[in-house]
């Protein structure tokens, strides 16, 4: 609670400083809009639903792209984590690809899929899949062999061993990979939307630039930050906390 108070005071002061700079009139309004006008733009965006539509379109893209990368990433991570042959081949390919910034896939994505949704979804997918795969891989490698032996003597075999033991035991690492994958995916999505004209939050950002409407640019940036924080707080932090409690890593 005390932390919340500190944060509230800090951000109020920050907004005050911003307003003060605006009143001093050093920069013209199209360079530095006032916090009030940004708030107005935000309110207008929600009223005429242009922001809501942008959010909905962006969320749909990331849901599809991230969903696919979750399935593929966990599957590939399991293969790399459990089988030497995949570790030596696929594993080295993945660690190589990880050095490539996701936006570098854009030209290839455009040539493969054209100027459309699928090109952006592909970017989202490439952003998340590698982190999820490596997270799963390290999770699988850290499963205590004792768990597997115990499960085997109780009759766990083949896919049941994976479903009931290996994946749950690897979950703490998988979640870390998912979290990192999410933030990469979110960035790639915004980068893609900035460059491909097809609605979404990134596109609204570009419209703001084209109309010379700085308050819209800042308003959209705020929405992007807000969504990032919300997903982190509402999903990842809760899941991580839950796991830490289960595993006995934190006093609940």
């Amino acid at each position: 609670m005390y932390g919340m108070l500190k944060r509230a005071i800090f951000f109020t002061l920050l907004a005050g400083l911003w307003q003060l700079l605006f009143w001093l009139g050093i920069w013209p309004e199209y360079v530095l809009p006032s916090p009030v006008s940004v708030c107005k733009t935000l309110a207008r965006g929600f009223q005429d639903q242009s922001l809501l539509i942008g959010v909905a379109i962006s969320m749909k893209r990331i849901a599809i792209g991230y969903g696919i990368s979750l399935g593929v990433g966990i599957f590939v991570g399991l293969l790399i984590g459990r089988f030497r042959i995949f570790e030596d081949t696929l594993g080295s390919l993945i660690s190589g690809l990880q050095t490539l910034p996701t936006i570098c896939w854009l030209p290839l994505s455009l040539l493969w899929f054209g100027l459309n949704d699928r090109a952006i979804i592909f970017l989202v997918f490439m952003g998340a899949v590698l982190s999820i795969a490596t997270g799963t891989d390290s999770g699988v490698k850290n499963v205590p062999p004792l768990y597997i032996r115990a499960a085997k003597t109780m009759g766990a075999k083949k896919w049941k061993l994976y479903l009931e033991v290996i994946i749950p035991a690897a979950l703490p690492h998988i979640i870390i990979g998912m979290k990192q994958g999410w933030s990469f995916a979110w960035r790639s999505l915004m980068a893609g939307e900035l460059l491909i004209v097809c609605l979404g939050l990134g596109h609204l950002l570009m419209i703001g630039r084209e109309l010379n409407d700085m308050s819209q640019v800042i308003a959209v940036m705020m929405v992007i930050i807000l969504i990032g924080i919300l997903v982190d707080r509402l999903f990842f932090m809760k899941v991580e906390r839950h796991i830490r409690e289960r595993w006995g890593l934190v006093k609940s």
């Binding site: 032996r149 003597t153 749950p168 035991a169 006995g248």
Partner: peptide, 11 residues
């Protein structure tokens, strides 16, 4: 088998 460490699943 019952092992030296209980091998119970923390999840």
């Amino acid at each position: 088998v019952i092992f030296q460490e209980a091998a119970l699943f923390p999840w």
